[in-house]
Amino acid sequence: MKKLAVLAVIAAMVLPTAAFAVTGTIQATANVLTPLSVSTDLRALDFGDVFPGVNKSIAFGDATSGKWQIIGATSAEVQMSFTLPLNLINGVNTMPISFSATDAAYFDADAVGSAVAFDPSAGSTDNLNGGTGEGFVWLGGTVAPAANQVAGAYAATVSLDVVYTGN
């Protein structure tokens, strides 16, 4: 009986309380992708001289097509979308501009000859280069000056938005 009493006392003494808390540790981890950057004005879409009443087109593979460079996480999938103008502007004068379904192109290196065309109005989803994290986008288009188009330098902003898809 005495032995049982002693054991009960010992057991009561070793029952843990807050002072005897035990701790287990894990880690919370995350891999943040390199933030995307898109070059501004790497090359403007330049139609050069345009004659009133004569449409002029620039293909994405031409030397004066618009061009952007994207830099991000290697191999990451990105979605590209354009904000396209309807007109080029010169003061109060406007000149219509349009984009066909094959006026934009993408490749994961600076090689327009290997680029794959896409519709700039629909955008495209592609992967950045697995080694450099780069991507390149080219854009052509067509301007349609009226026969009585007022002479002058016309311009408009073309925006390219690029976001990670998470894939």
């Binding site: 029952l15 843990p16 309380t17 807050a18 002072a19 005897f20 808390a21 035990v22 701790t23 287990g24 540790t25 894990i26 880690q27 919370a28 981890t29 995350a30 891999n31 943040v32 992708l33 390199t34 933030p35 996480a73």
Partner: peptide
């Protein structure tokens, strides 16, 4: 900034 992030998370337990 891109990179591998981490921190410890501790769980305390007592009767």
């Amino acid at each position: 900034a891109g990179g591998d992030y981490s921190a410890d998370v501790d769980l305390d337990v007592y009767y």
